[in-house]
Design a protein around this nucleic acid. Structure first.
Lengths: 258, 258
DNA sequence: CGTCAAGAAAGTGTCGACACTATTGCGTTC
DNA sequence: GAACGCAATAGTGTCGACACTTTCTTGACG
């Protein structure tokens, strides 16, 4: 435990390869992205205590930007901070996630309603065309792309609500549930439903049918929630398999992304 | 559920609004509270660039905890961070505030609805009795107490929704609009309405009238919004008058003590 | 054998310093 | 006299160091 900080730890950080020793390339940001990635991929496990020094070493930066990133992640709910003991990975509980989904549903439904009231025809049409440009090859893309586009779709609605605070909140929530959504999408259990739901939502938007649209959205998200239950089991597996000694994959190329 | 309503420890105004994550160690916490106070009191003015070194000196601590506090405040929307130029006080615009109120309305209405569905009779009664214990001398208290109790009332509803994420969001929002609410309350323009509204809301809660209750809430908050317009004028005055020092002067003991 | 305590080790919280960047002030050119 | 560029200054971003706190180790005591 004490003698090999290099061999075992070395968390994959195939980040923007900057061959130069340019020290002023916003380390904080890099740390933030890297750590969040570790959290999403469960290389940092729920409830685990986060070791700042180890992180700093593995990212080859000092603890200061690490701490800044962790503070940010704490405000966003990814980790928590206990006074003299440091940062801990937020626990992964089903109910916690469901609470988040519920909040997301609330906010998105409200956004949709506001969009119906306020957005111009052009704006609504931009939503339509965004989705139209996507729907064809939607299912054939890598999970991360699907995820990004799905998020984008929902965020677009939030933007058309005209209330930037709604956008912010939604994006904060998205960031926190992204890890589970990715797993869900890998399941690919309800692609068709997703596509159909989005199309239906767009239709409702065009008709400015606030009631119908919010109902669709609610159902859409509810469906996702139930899929979440499934995904969570996978997630837990992942957590434990990526734990101490996973003989299968330890280092080398990142496991699942790209 | 798991959230015992017993944990009513008095919301002190200078207190953090984030219940869950962080009770940072001494300096950081102190910096956070101090800076937030400066923001609330407009000793740091909207759009102004924040000078970390000056703050550090005036609080007699190093820049590190200052930065940690600022990062936190940035995540919470009080300030913004521009890459190599530092932190800036968030601009004070009417529409920004209205967006926040709108979001608040959305979240509170949803909370009320969920409370109607989920809270036990005892829990609802705790809401009723909290308000009952308050209503008598409500108007005769100092503004800060009124504010705290008003917030508490609304947060209580959020807690009874059973969704802690809702509570968090509401408290984050409250923290950001508190400064203007304080000014509003000093106006005392619609006390009676406020008392009446709360009472009506409690009644609706007892009857589990989700529709009626959310409507009341929406109206209640809308009323507040229109009062906000008034208050904003005051706020702007305050901004400019509290800055006796011309922006030119940048040295010396600029930030007055607490 | 298990409990506990003292000391060692590990780790966080804060500091002062320094490199690099943005801004300000000044002198030069047209 | 104004625009431009260049030097000086102020300020941020990051670092390594250190003090203090928590956690682990080890050895004495019941």
């Amino acid at each position: 435990m004490k003698n090999s900080p290099e061999t075992t730890d070395h968390i994959a950080l195939a980040e923007t390869a900057e061959p130069e020793t340019r020290r002023s390339a916003d380390s904080s940001e890099r740390a933030y992205n890297a750590i969040r990635k570790l959290l999403v991929e469960f290389q940092l496990k729920p409830e685990e205590r986060i070791n700042e020094m180890r992180l700093a070493k593995s990212l080859s930066i000092s603890r200061t930007p690490i701490r800044e990133a962790l503070n940010r992640l704490a405000s966003e709910g990814f980790v928590s901070l206990t006074p003299n003991r440091g940062f801990f990975v937020r626990s992964l509980s089903t109910e916690g996630l469901i609470d988040l989904y519920e909040l997301r549903s609330i906010i998105e439904c409200a956004a949709f309603r506001l969009m119906c009231e306020r957005a111009s025809d052009d704006e609504i049409d931009s939503l339509r065309s965004y989705w139209a440009g996507l729907v064809e090859g939607y299912r054939d893309q890598p999970p991360d792309d699907i995820l990004a586009e799905d998020e984008r779709f929902h965020v677009l609605i939030a933007e058309l609500s005209g209330n930037p605070e709604i956008v912010n909140q939604l994006q904060a929530i998205n960031a926190r549930i992204r890890f589970i959504r990715r797993i869900q999408i890998e399941h690919r259990s309800h692609d068709k439903d997703l596509v159909a739901a989005h199309s239906a939502i767009v239709d409702a938007a065009i008709k400015r049918d606030a009631e119908g649209g919010t109902e669709l959205l609610r159902k859409h998200i509810e469906l996702t929630v139930s899929a979440t239950q499934e995904a969570l089991k996978d997630a837990l597996l992942k957590v434990y398999s990526s734990a101490d000694q996973s003989p299968r994959q330890r280092r080398g190329r990142a496991a699942s992304n790209t």
